[in-house]
Every structure is written in structure tokens, then in C-alpha cells.
Simulated assay, not measured.
Amino acid sequence: MLGKRAEIGLKRKIDADQWDCIKGRGKDRSEEIRNLIPIRSRSEPNFYSATANLSKRTK
């Protein structure tokens, strides 16, 4: 069965020149980037958990 893609956002924005696409995180240590780090750290495990739950349901 083919899966479906979902995009999830945190309703936070930074300038494109401050984003490292390869690493998937902010480049520099500006205050703006430092404020995003804890938000992302808290949210990321929830995304992985949701993905795992969806995988189990489709099997």
C-alpha cells in the first residue's frame, strides 16, 4: 500500500538564508534561531511517534 504525505508546520518562520536545508535546522546562533530550538526539540518526538502509530495502523 502506498503511503500519503503530510506536511506539518509549527507556525514559525525564519529567513531562508538562516536555514540549512541539509541539516534541517537553523544555521547561525541568532536569538531567533535559539528560540526555535526548544520548540523543535519538544515537537520532534511527537512527530516520530505519530508516524510510528500510522505505520502500525496501515499494516
Rank of each mutant, 00 (worst) to 15 (best):
R12A: 05
S55T: 06
D15Q: 09
G9V: 01
D15M: 07
A52G: 04
K56P: 00
R42Q: 13
D15V: 03
G9C: 09
A52Y: 15
E31G: 02
K56I: 05
R5V: 13
S49T: 08
L10M: 10
P45V: 07
L36K: 03
K4F: 06
S41I: 05
I14Y: 03
K4D: 02
S55L: 15
R12L: 14
S41H: 05
I14W: 02
N46M: 06
G3A: 03
S30G: 14
E44I: 11
R34Y: 13
P45Y: 06
R42M: 10
I14V: 14
E31N: 05
T58C: 05
E7I: 10
L2N: 12
E44T: 10
I22N: 06
L36W: 07
P38V: 11
K4V: 03
T58L: 08
S41Y: 04
I22D: 04
N35W: 01
Q18Y: 08
W19I: 02
P38K: 12
K4P: 01
F47L: 12
G26F: 10
I33K: 01
P45W: 04
Y48L: 09
A6P: 02
S49E: 11
C21I: 12
N53M: 07
S30N: 15
M1C: 02
D17N: 15
R12H: 09
K11V: 12
L10R: 03
R29C: 11
I37H: 03
C21G: 12
K11S: 12
E31H: 04
R29D: 14
I37Y: 03
S43E: 11
I8H: 04
Y48Q: 09
W19A: 00
L2V: 09
P38C: 02
N53R: 15
M1F: 04
G3K: 07
L54H: 07
E44S: 12
A52N: 09
R34C: 12
F47E: 01
L2Y: 05
M1N: 09
G24P: 06
A16G: 03
R5T: 14
R57S: 06
P45L: 02
L54K: 14
Q18A: 03
K4H: 13
A6N: 08
I37V: 09
A52W: 15
T51Y: 15
E31M: 04
I14T: 05
K23Y: 11
A6R: 12
S43A: 15
C21F: 12
N53D: 13
I22L: 10
K23T: 11
M1Q: 05
D20T: 01
L36S: 02
E7F: 13
D15N: 08
A50W: 15
I22E: 11
L36D: 00
M1I: 07
S43I: 03
R29A: 13
K23Q: 14
G26D: 02
I37A: 02
L10H: 02
R34F: 10
